[in-house]
């Protein structure tokens, strides 16, 4: 599997998926619009929050950017393939259908990021002092969080998608997870606004490491590193997903399988 990812074939496949995703322009437009949630909360906190505007601008900028590294739709697409039996022909190929979705998400990332650039350019224009507090030295830590977050969300999508082997629908639960992420992840409000006891407790969940800590780190609010917890959750979720996937395939009985 790993060898396949590193091979030339995977690159060619990725290229094809980039082209395919570029064809659905409406989807791209609405994805970028759908990412605007942290920006609207920025508008809220700038009006009523205790910190200087540029501080909030930096925090929400990085919280917003993290959204582009969050695979969505993996669970929905996998579940759809399982429920409709479209998975059957895909299983005949010499690589796992899960890799399709990994390649698809990577391709989407390549497509989305250039679209984010014009919006990103607005920040220094709207918030004087935005660039002043930035430091390149903090970016590798931020990037590591994003990479781990990408893996975690992909594993989560895989797990919930694989649940479709056993349940009819599970994506509602995943939507609910996103609701929790919005609040307890730090997308809508910086977690330092929550009671410290609750934040300590949340520290054992993956949520704060997906938005709050990366954004707070990059914005220069704090230096705490919690990669271990997120890596642990990623491994756990990935292992569960692999298990559910194998068990599911064993009982999968759609046409032709």
């Amino acid at each position: 599997m790993v060898r396949w990812i590193l091979s030339q074939k995977f690159l060619a496949y990725l290229e094809a998926l980039v082209a395919q995703n570029l064809a659905y322009r409406g989807e791209l437009l609405f994805f970028v619009l759908a990412q605007s949630l942290p920006l609207l909360f920025l508008a809220l906190w700038v009006e009523g929050g205790p910190r200087p505007d540029a501080d909030y601008a930096r925090y929400y900028f990085f919280a917003w950017l993290a959204g582009f590294f969050r695979p969505t739709g993996v669970a929905y697409n996998l579940g759809y393939e399982i429920n409709t039996g479209r998975l059957s022909p895909l299983l005949l190929r010499p690589f796992s259908p899960v890799l399709d979705h990994l390649a698809d998400q990577l391709a989407l990332l390549l497509v989305y990021l250039p679209l984010a650039m014009p919006v990103a350019a607005l920040f220094p224009a709207l918030f004087p002092g935005f660039l002043g507090g930035l430091s390149v030295a903090r970016l590798p830590g931020y990037a590591l969080y994003l990479a781990l977050g990408f893996c975690f969300h992909f594993a989560l999508g895989w797990l919930f998608g694989a649940l479709a082997f056993f349940l009819e629908r599970s994506e509602g639960l995943l939507e609910a997870y996103y609701g929790l992420l919005y609040f307890f992840g730090g997308m809508t409000l910086p977690l330092d606004a929550l009671p410290p006891g609750l934040v300590r407790w949340l520290g054992w969940t993956p949520l704060p490491y997906l938005v709050y800590h990366p954004a707070a780190l990059a914005a220069g609010w704090e230096r705490q590193a919690g990669y271990g917890v997120l890596a642990g959750w990623t491994l756990l979720t990935g292992a569960l997903a692999a298990l559910a996937w194998r068990r599911g395939l064993a009982r999968y009985s759609a046409m032709g399988a």
Binding site: F30, A34, S36, Y76
Partner: peptide
């Protein structure tokens, strides 16, 4: 043709 993200946008 493909427009599932409308739903995500409306949720936001």
């Amino acid at each position: 043709v493909k427009l599932y993200n409308v739903v995500n946008f409306l949720g936001a």
